[in-house]
Each structure stands twice: as structure tokens, then as C-alpha cells.
């Protein structure tokens, strides 16, 4: 998954709703069909990133972790 990510947003220390706001702001910076990732320690992001994808008709690809062990949520831009 990691190799294909076109843009990774470092929101490690941001709390809800800021990581999702950042995702909403920057999604258009990647091409349709490409991946954008949000790195954050915010526990709400595990629920809110997939929910945002559903509300915005984007694809939630899944969760992994950075080398530092911070959760990373990966989204594919569909629209």
C-alpha cells in the first residue's frame, strides 16, 4: 500500500476533527484513482475517515502504520 501513496498528510498531533478537515482540503491535490493517506494518533480518525469516505463518495482503502507506529488511514480519490 505504502508505495502507491501519492500524498501523505502528517496530522500526527492533530485532534478531531482536524485530520478529517485536512483530508477534505487536500483530497483534490491527488488525481482521481490515486491514494492519499492521513497519519494521525487521533483515535476518532479510525471511525471518521471511513465515515467521511462514505459521505463524500470516496474509497476507504484501509489502515496501516508508519515506521514510528502511528496509525495511517489510506483513501482512494474516486470523485
Amino acid at each position: 500500500m505504502a508505495d502507491d501513496i501519492a500524498l501523505e498528510l502528517d496530522c500526527t498531533d492533530l485532534r478531531c476533527p482536524l485530520p478529517v478537515i485536512e483530508l477534505g482540503r487536500r483530497i483534490s491535490d491527488v488525481e482521481v484513482g490515486h491514494l492519499i493517506a492521513v497519519v494521525t494518533a487521533d483515535p476518532a480518525a479510525r471511525i471518521d475517515v471511513p465515515a467521511w469516505c462514505r459521505m463524500r463518495a470516496q474509497e476507504y482503502v484501509g489502515e496501516d502504520a508508519t515506521a514510528a507506529g502511528v496509525a495511517r488511514y489510506v483513501v482512494r480519490r474516486l470523485v
Partner: peptide, 8 residues
Amino acid sequence: AAMGVLTH
């Protein structure tokens, strides 16, 4: 969270 709806 269990419903998978927005929490913020």
C-alpha cells in the same frame, strides 16, 4: 463507532 458513523 460500532455503527460506522461520523463521531466528530
